[in-house]
Simulated scan of single mutants.
Amino acid sequence: MRNFDLILFDLDGTLLDTMKLITTSYQITIKHFTGKTVEAAHISKLVGTSIHNILSHFAVEPTAETIGFYKKTSAARHDDMVLIYPGVAETLQLLKEKQVRIGLVTSKIKDLAAMGLALFSLEPFFDVLVCMEDTTQHKPDPEPVLEACRRLDVQDLSRVLMVGDSPFDIRCAKRAGAKTAVVTWSDFSPEELAAEEPDYTIASLQELIELCGV
């Protein structure tokens, strides 16, 4: 028996290994506009929230200029620095074959998210894409998950599973009323993730298939 009507995935740190690209791009952007050097570890703790939140945290006003600089910095390095986690394409293919609806819910800028999906030919698997520009509020607010469900006319949030790698994914989904699964290949510590009390913890995407009951 199928356990969920909709599976929502985060992108960065869940499907694609982008942490090095993201922290490097923010370091360059912050240095350019403030002259300050920020350690990657300080940035990584905020990855999963919006660019507006991260830039503001490091005293960079999120304007068209600063966001545009970040986008160009990231895009120039993207294909050389982004990796896909093992089993991602195969898992999405299997879910699609089993007619499970799949969505992407990310705080990432739409153009940059599209680059990652295109690099590994993942976009055709998704029934809905919710990126930064699609909502006024971002993770950990529930609006991104609620927007994905609204677009697919999913009414019962208890049959929606959000798969992510950060506390922000878990909080977003919980506040929306969805179930949560956190991946163990996260850059966040097991203690940080356990403190959010996710419904499930998965060590492989094969475990996700079993969890979904397909």
Results as ranks from 00 to 15, higher is better:
residue 29 T to N: 04
residue 161 L to A: 00
residue 152 L to K: 03
residue 165 D to H: 03
residue 139 K to V: 11
residue 35 G to W: 06
residue 111 D to N: 03
residue 38 V to E: 08
residue 33 F to H: 11
residue 105 V to C: 12
residue 153 D to R: 13
residue 144 P to S: 11
residue 57 H to E: 11
residue 58 F to K: 10
residue 76 A to M: 02
residue 74 S to H: 05
residue 73 T to M: 01
residue 85 Y to D: 02
residue 36 K to H: 11
residue 55 L to R: 04
residue 30 I to M: 09
residue 151 R to F: 07
residue 84 I to K: 06
residue 77 R to N: 15
residue 114 A to T: 06
residue 122 L to C: 03
residue 39 E to I: 08
residue 65 E to N: 05
residue 61 E to G: 10
residue 60 V to P: 08
residue 54 I to E: 02
residue 153 D to T: 15
residue 119 L to P: 02
residue 78 H to F: 15
residue 54 I to G: 09
residue 135 T to N: 15
residue 42 H to T: 11
residue 143 E to V: 09
residue 27 Q to P: 03
residue 68 G to L: 00
residue 138 H to R: 14
residue 102 I to D: 03
residue 106 T to K: 05
residue 60 V to C: 12
residue 104 L to R: 11
residue 42 H to P: 02
residue 134 D to K: 05
residue 57 H to A: 12
residue 67 I to Q: 08
residue 93 Q to D: 13
residue 135 T to P: 13
residue 88 V to D: 01
residue 108 K to L: 09
residue 31 K to L: 11
residue 141 D to K: 09
residue 120 F to I: 06
residue 58 F to M: 09
residue 69 F to G: 02
residue 82 V to L: 00
residue 91 T to E: 04
residue 84 I to L: 07
residue 33 F to I: 11
residue 86 P to Q: 07
residue 46 L to Y: 14
residue 149 C to F: 05
residue 105 V to Y: 04
residue 161 L to M: 00
residue 45 K to W: 08
residue 156 D to Y: 03
residue 73 T to Q: 09
